[in-house]
Design a protein around this nucleic acid. Structure first.
Length: 310
DNA sequence: AACAGGCTCAACCGCCCGGAA
DNA sequence: ATTCCGGGCGGTTGAGCCTGT
């Protein structure tokens, strides 16, 4: 509780000073109040909701807390390989449209995806000493990183034989058959258990050490901090780390458009890319050659091992 | 064990947009 | 036509945690 009080010592805006609105981390009581109120009255009209619920918070704060944390279908834990792949692809398509990207990653919030991008992808760009928006880096992502991800997903599919690997099997079969492309947002897709996703309890962890300490998303409790570590790269472990909606969303990816398209384009490996005669500029090719020299170790583990070695 | 630096992510900020008054 | 307000979005911050030395 002291931690929360200390963390709440933000400077207040004039408006909030006048209204003496609370800021900083949410307490258990506030969470419960908000959840109960929304369960009874629904969401929306956040400012009046905050007042009516007796929450001494801004409407924005309530909305953010609900959308990013308390919503029953919020999915937490490690970003899976499939999700990484989707994020990279969708970001290359739409740029920093985090909410739009998040719409295609069920249960993930724009905030989470944004954080992933900033902490992981931008870091890699920085370590490669190029701008994250440069053509060089984009080409590296598209022709080395993403194909490598597909490889890893497929590798896991063959070794695990579990449901997580179904994504790639489905991707391949979809590619070969030209079968249905599922829309991630189509909740009529029976592969996704919408009902259970909605009724599962919210994420906050209320540790029961007698003092009912509240852990608002503490990475040490809710999700492994090693979100991209080698351990986390194992899909089984990844999914095991999901306390909420575990496994539900795996099926989502089984027929996902991107994986399907990706396999369809034979972008299975970097080599394949080049053999396909991709549209690479001379500069990009030189860059690729340079990166390619170290790509084996680099793409062997996307989670920084190569970077650490160098 | 202690310290420093890096990393993560919840929460906030400021801007913008659309609809209602 | 203008103003106000609710809501959404992308960017930023900073406390706590993790990891290496």
């Amino acid at each position: 509780m002291e931690q929360m009080q200390a963390k709440a010592n933000y400077s207040k805006s004039t408006e909030e000073e006048m209204a003496d609105l609370r800021r900083g981390p949410w307490t258990v009581e506030e969470d419960l109040t908000l959840m109960n109120y929304i369960a009874r009255h629904g969401e929306g009209r956040w400012n009046s909701l905050s007042r009516c619920a007796g929450l001494n918070r801004t409407g924005k704060s309530c909305r953010l807390r609900w959308l990013n944390y308390l919503r029953p279908d919020v999915r937490r834990g490690n970003i899976t390989l499939e999700e990484q792949l989707l994020i990279l692809e969708l970001h290359s398509r739409w740029g920093n449209r985090w909410s739009k990207i998040a719409q295609h990653l069920p249960g993930r919030t724009d905030n989470e995806i944004k954080n992933y991008w900033r902490t992981r992808v931008q870091k890699h760009a920085k370590q490669l000493k190029c701008d994250v928006n440069s053509k060089q880096f984009k080409d590296t992502m598209r022709y080395l990183w993403m194909p490598r991800l597909v490889e890893r997903i497929q590798a896991q599919a063959t070794t695990s034989g579990g449901s997580g690997g179904a994504a790639v099997a489905a991707a391949s079969s979809y590619a070969n058959s030209g079968a249905t492309v599922y829309d991630l947002n189509d909740q009529s897709n029976t592969d996704f258990d919408v009902v259970s996703a909605q009724v599962l309890p919210p994420q906050p962890v209320y540790g029961d050490g007698g003092a009912h300490m509240y852990s608002p998303g503490s990475s040490s409790v809710v999700a492994s901090s090693d979100s991209f570590g080698t351990a986390a790269s194992d899909m089984t472990e990844c999914y095991n780390n999901y306390p909420v909606n575990q496994g539900n969303n795996q099926d989502y990816y089984q027929g996902h458009e991107y994986l399907s398209n990706y396999a369809d384009q034979s972008l299975i490996s970097p080599t394949g890319c080049f053999q396909q005669g991709m549209d690479l500029s001379e500069d990009s090719c030189q860059w690729m050659n340079a990166v390619g020299d170290i790509s084996d170790s680099l793409w062997n583990d996307i989670d920084d091992v190569w970077f650490l070695q160098h």
